[in-house]
Structures are given as structure tokens and as C-alpha cells.
Design a binder for these strands. Structure first.
Lengths: 195, 195
DNA sequence: AGCGGAATTCATCAGTCGTAGAATTCAACG
DNA sequence: CGTTGAATTCTACGACTGATGAATTCCGCT
């Protein structure tokens, strides 16, 4: 039987939709984003999105991704050893948020907070890819809890400095903040265990 | 001149709308909430809301409020002195989130993250009512920055424990978490100043 | 009783959303 | 060339949104 027919633009359009979806979901969060908005950014007909991805939820699942790869940056931060890891980690975190990738991170937070599906994805991803790797490196008691506590400090920092934009944090330099916060992160990582 | 006419239910309905608005904004956040949803909770005609408050934004501004009063709890926490304040503050924070008031706090976070207007309100309120009072009590250098850093730790804790529900934090007891986190909060409050 | 006017209801508008499906375009093949 | 079938476009449906304004109810006063 003849399996012929058109077979072109496939790659191009689908990828452009995904890129536009990342950008638009990033700015608006899951609820605020619209298929028409994504299509406009992609320069594409809106009906193409449900066609390729089935639904709004489908394209969201396909588009969500971390702008940085934990498999890369975590070993790099761990390489010099556990000493000063708290401050290195904090500084790297701030540098990432201040880089172009920061914009899509705000969108990621918007989606996670407003949407149960995104919160599930994030929980699984962070637990497996980030906390797991960190916990593996610090060979102490309660590694999961320690890594999660580090998470609370860094996520809270992002919330107040980048989302709510509290003045005294938004105007401080990365280096000063890392010096304040680094030792607390370090204590979570390598301090004495708490009952 | 006769200034007569109907003058009844005024108090009742308006207050019921406000209560319903707090509940519904709390569950859905600003974008997700709808006037019809609020009206349904209040048992009231939807058109009454724009009538009383002008618009969705109007009823939101009227409804947003902290479930706990900083003017009350901050002096109470400060009363025993600065020693152990970090742990007391953390424990009180966790108790508040675990109380019935916690539900509306999640909604407050949803609104703050998804809506610029709510973020403005929150920034002003927290700066003036919470950080201001704290900064006044600790008579050390950089009181605003210290209080804001405390905020990062506590907000991040709320995000991971109550919004994202990271397992190791969600299942830990309030007391254990306060023992882990309290000393770090204390360091922000009274530790040596950082360049 | 009867009137003024606030409180409340009702119908509806214009706009946007996600989605579905028919119609059209067009590269790849026989 | 002509057929095939994926890629793309177009149109539209049904549901929902915030908001408006006219109609109605009914209390408080004279």
C-alpha cells in the first residue's frame, strides 16, 4: 500500500510551538496563558496546538522544563568539596535568577502555585533531580530533610527578591546576599543533626 | 427634604459578600476566582458585587486581609526578649499555617504570585506592618535587611511545606522544623553583620 | 396610605476561552 | 500527472467571564 503524502515542516512548527509555549506559560502561568497567545508568539494558527499536543494540558506538559540542568550544575558545585558549598550554591542560585533564564523561572513559580498539575511535576522533578543528587553528596543523617531545608531558604529568597520584589532584597548585591545566606544554607547541609 | 427609602440588609449582605470573597479568592487566587463563584458562596445575586464594590478588583481590595494581626503577635513574640526569638517565631509561623487560617494564607500566596496588584498590596503591608515592627525591635545594623532575610526563610518554608508539599517537610513535626530553622532565623535577627 | 429610594433581581452584552471538525494547501510518491 | 495524506487554515460552537442598566421589591419615613 502507498504510504505517501506530505512530510515537511514537521520539525519546524512543532518546535516553534514548544518554544512559544515555554515563553508564554513562563510569563503568564498555566491559568493565565492561552492557546491563542502561544500561537501568536509562535506565528502559527491556534488550532495547530490542540492538533499537535491534544489539549492545553498536553502542550503544557510538553513545554515545562527547567532552564538549567541539575545533572550539570550540581556536580559542578559539589566538585570543590562540601566546604563553602552553602555560599557557592546561593550565589549560583542568584546568578541563575539574574540571568535570562530567570524570567522563565518566575513563570514556573506562577504555574506551580496556581496549578496542581504543575505542582506535582515540580515536586517530582525537584525531589528526584535536585534533592536526590544533593542528598547523595552529603553523607550525613537525614539527607532528604537537609536538602529540603536548603530548598526552603532558596525558594523563599526567590519569592521575596524576584516575585514580590521586597526592596531591601531586590537592591542588595548577589555577593552580599550570598554572604548572609550562605552560612545558613551550609548549616542545613553539614551542621549537627537535630533531634 | 425627605431622605427616606429602604435602609435594611445593608450590613448583612455586604459583609456576607466580603466573607465569601475572602474564602473564594483564598481558594482560587485572584485570576481563578469569579464574581459568580463568590456570589454563590455568599448566596447572593452576582450583580450585587459590582454594585457594592464597583468591580472585581474593588471587591478584591476590600477582601484581602491578613488572618492574623501583626500588631498583636509581634509584640507577644518579642516580649520574652531576643533570646530564642528565632525558634519562637518559626514555631508561631508553623502553628498559624496549620490552623484554620492556613487555608486563606495559601490563597493569599496564590493571589500574590499571579497578580501584580496583590503583590503590591502584600509588599506594602509586610514592609510596614511586619518588617517594620521587627526591625524596630532589633536594635542592630541593617534591621530592614535582617527582617527581610527572616521573611525569605519563612516564606520558603511555607512554599515547600504547604504549597508544593515536599514530603520530608510536610511530614515533619512543627517542633522538629522549628529546631532546625529557628537558629538560622536567629542568626539573621541577631548575628554579626555582614559586610 | 403612599411615596422615595436603597436593595436586589433579571436579562443581556461583548469578549474570551478551549476545542472540534470541515475545508484547504501542498510536498512526496507511483 | 494525479493521487495520497499529513500540515495547515478557517469557521464556529458552547461555555464562561466581568460588567451594565432597566425592572422590581420592599423598608422607613411622612
Amino acid at each position: 500500500m502507498p504510504r505517501t503524502g506530505r512530510r515537511p515542516g514537521r520539525a519546524g512548527t512543532r518546535a516553534r510551538i514548544l518554544a512559544a509555549a515555554r515563553e508564554h506559560f513562563g510569563e503568564e502561568g498555566y491559568e493565565g496563558a492561552t492557546l491563542r497567545g502561544i500561537a501568536a508568539v509562535a506565528g502559527v494558527d491556534p488550532a495547530l496546538i490542540p492538533h499537535y499536543f491534544g489539549s492545553k494540558e498536553g502542550v503544557f506538559l510538553a513545554a515545562v522544563e527547567f532552564p538549567v540542568d541539575p545533572a550539570v550544575f550540581i556536580p559542578r558545585l559539589l566538585q570543590p568539596g562540601l566546604d563553602g558549598l552553602g555560599e557557592r550554591l546561593t550565589l549560583f542560585f542568584l546568578e541563575t535568577w539574574d540571568s535570562p533564564a530567570g524570567a522563565s523561572l518566575i513563570g514556573l513559580i506562577r504555574s506551580v502555585v496556581s496549578n496542581e498539575l504543575a505542582a506535582d511535576l515540580m515536586r517530582r522533578f525537584v525531589t528526584r533531580e535536585v534533592l536526590g543528587r544533593l542528598a547523595e553528596a552529603i553523607k550525613l543523617d537525614e539527607p532528604q530533610l537537609r536538602a529540603s531545608l536548603v530548598g526552603t531558604q532558596l525558594v523563599g529568597l526567590a519569592m521575596l527578591r524576584y516575585v514580590i520584589k521586597v526592596e531591601s532584597l531586590a537592591s542588595a548585591s548577589r555577593e552580599e546576599l550570598a554572604r548572609w545566606i550562605g552560612p545558613n544554607v551550609q548549616r542545613y547541609l553539614t551542621g549537627p543533626v537535630i533531634a
